[in-house]
Design a protein around this nucleic acid. Structure first.
Lengths: 282, 282
DNA sequence: TATAATAATGACTAATTAGTCAGTTGTCAA
DNA sequence: TTGACAACTGACTAATTAGTCATTATTATA
C-alpha cells in the first residue's frame, strides 16, 4: 500500500473520532507509524489531505448512487435502490460519513466549503433527475421541494444509524422511505422550496457572474408585460453592461420591478450584485 | 448590561461565523473591547461559556415551542404553531442556531455532548406528545418514526434558511410542513424507527443503569411464553443482581433468548452491558 | 480626602500547533 | 565496494493557544 493511501485510511479513523480541527498531524503520523516529515512528502498540508479524502469518498458515493439511479429504468425499484445504495454506501464508509456530517457545515476553509457544495449539488441533481424520471409532469411544481424532503430523510436517518449503536435493517429503512417518498410525491399540494429558491440557493454559494445575471434578466424581460416593468428592466440591463446610473437610481428601478412576481428573483439578485460592487468600490 | 451577557452576545456572533474551536478567547475579548483577564472573571473557562450559551438559548427555544404545543388544544392549528414557532425561534436566534447546526455532532467535550442530547431528548418528547395528542391511537406504530421525519424536516429546512441568503416566508414553510406531516401521519404503513430503536437510541448515550436494565428485563420476563425463554431470562436477572456466572454462560443465555422477538432488545442491551463490565474489569 | 474593596488589565507561562530542513538510512546499478 | 539517488527522520521554528496573576484603575464608603 502506498504511503498516501495509508495516511488517508488512518487519518479517516482519527477524523471520525475527533474531528478535523482537533486531530493534529502529529497524531496522524503516530497512528501511521511514520515520521512527520514523511507526511509532508505525501501531502503539502493538512488541508490537502482532507480535500483528497473528500474527493476520494464523495466521488465514489455519488457515482455509486447515480449509477444505481440511471441504470434503473424508472420502475418501482429505482427509489428503493437509491435509498438502499445511499445508506449502504454510508455504512460501508461509515468513518468518512461521520466526518462528512461533522464537518459539512462547520468548516471554514474556502476550498473545503466549495468542495462540499459541489458534491451537494451533484447529489441534488441525481435526486431531481430520478424524481423527474419517476413522476414526470405530475411533480413539476413540487419536485424541488421533494428534493429537500429526501435530503432531510437521508440526513436524519444517516445520523441515527451512524452515531447510535443501533442494529439496522437497511432493507426496511429503504422500504419505509420509498413509501414516504411516494406519498409525498403523489399528494403534496403546497411545496415550500420553489424552483426559484432552489436555483437561488445554488447560486448564492458561488459568485454570481454577470453573464448568469444577464441571462436571467433577459428571461424576465421577455416575460414582462407592463411598460414600467419593461423599461426598468431594460435600464438595469444597460447599467449591467455598462455602469452609468447612480446607486439611488438603481434602487428606484429595483423598487419598480420587485412588485412583479416574475421579477422578484432578478430584483433580489441584482440588489445583492450591486450592493456588493458598491461596497467593494469604497 | 452585565459583562457576562456582553461576552455571551459577542461570542455567539463569532462562534456562528467561525465555529467554537476556531474562535480564540483573545478574539472574543477584543470583540467585546475588554481584557483577557476580564473574561476569566465572568467564565472559568472557554468551555463554561459555550455551555452557558447552550443552556440559555436551548431552554428558551424548547420552552417557546413546548408552550405553543401544550397551550393549543390539539386542533388543526397545533402543528402549524409548532413549525412556525420553531423556525421563528431559530430565525430570531439565527447566530445561535447556526452554532447549534455546526457543533451538534462535532463537539467532543463530554459535557457538551450530553447537553446537546439532553435538549434533543426534550425536543423529541415535545414532538412525540404533540403527535400523540393530535393523532392518538392511529399512529401507535408509526409515531416514533414520525418524530424522526419531523426532525428531518426541521433540520434540512433550517439549514436552508440559515445558511443561504434566501428570502423566506415562514407561514408558507409551516403550512407546507403541516401538509406533509398530516400526509405521513395518516398514511404511513411501514415505519422504520420502532419504539425499541427510539428508546435504545435514547439509552445508548447515557450509561444504562442496572435499574433500567432490570425494569426492561422484568417486562420481557412477564411477556415470555416458552420455558427456555423464561428460565434464561430468570438466570440473567439473578446474574444481574449478583454476578455469579462466567462470560461463556452469559453468552449462551443471551443466544437462548435473542431469537424471541420480545427479547431482541434486552439481549442487545445486556450484551453491551456485560461486555462493558468485562473489559472494565481487565 | 483617605481607606478599603472591587474591577480590570495585559504581560506572562506552558503547552500545542503546522510546517521545515539538515542530516541519516536504505536501495539499487555500475 | 562505491557512488548516486530517493525515502525518510525528528529536532527545530515561529506562531498560536488557554489560562494566570501581580499590578493598576475605579468606585464606594467613612
Amino acid at each position: 500500500m502506498g504511503k498516501k493511501q495509508l495516511i488517508m485510511e488512518k487519518a479517516v479513523e482519527l477524523f471520525a473520532q475527533q474531528g478535523f480541527e482537533l486531530t493534529s498531524v502529529q497524531q496522524i503520523t503516530e497512528h501511521c507509524g511514520i515520521s512527520k516529515g514523511a507526511f509532508y512528502l505525501s501531502f503539502k498540508s493538512k488541508d490537502e489531505l482532507i480535500i483528497a479524502l473528500i474527493d476520494q469518498f464523495m466521488s465514489q458515493m455519488i457515482s455509486d448512487t447515480d449509477y444505481q439511479v440511471t441504470k434503473n429504468q424508472n420502475d418501482e425499484k429505482t427509489l428503493y435502490e437509491f435509498y438502499f445504495t445511499m445508506f449502504k454506501s454510508s455504512q460501508k464508509h461509515s468513518n468518512f460519513a461521520k466526518i462528512l456530517m461533522k464537518e459539512q457545515s462547520q468548516s471554514f476553509n474556502k476550498e473545503l466549503v466549495s468542495k462540499f457544495h459541489h458534491y451537494d449539488r451533484l447529489l441534488e441533481k441525481t435526486i431531481l433527475t430520478m424524481m423527474e424520471g419517476l413522476f414526470g409532469e405530475k411533480i413539476e411544481n413540487t419536485k424541488h421541494d421533494l428534493v429537500y424532503c429526501i435530503k432531510g430523510f437521508i440526513s436524519i436517518y444517516s445520523e441515527l444509524i451512524l452515531f447510535n449503536n443501533v442494529p439496522v435493517n437497511l432493507e426496511q429503512l429503504a422500504h419505509s422511505l420509498v413509501e414516504k417518498t411516494n406519498l409525498l410525491a403523489t399528494q403534496i399540494t403546497t411545496p415550500f422550496v420553489t424552483k426559484e429558491i432552489f436555483q437561488l440557493k445554488r447560486l448564492s454559494h458561488e459568485e454570481v457572474t454577470k453573464d448568469q445575471l444577464l441571462e436571467i434578466l433577459e428571461q424576465s424581460l421577455s416575460e414582462a408585460e407592463e411598460l414600467l416593468e419593461q423599461e426598468s428592466l431594460s435600464l438595469l440591463k444597460q447599467h449591467l453592461l455598462e455602469p452609468s446610473l447612480s446607486q439611488v437610481l438603481i434602487e428606484g428601478l429595483l423598487k419598480n420591478i420587485q412588485g412583479y412576481p416574475n421579477c422578484k428573483w432578478i430584483a433580489y439578485l441584482l440588489r445583492n450584485y450591486f450592493a456588493l460592487e458598491f461596497t467593494e468600490n469604497k
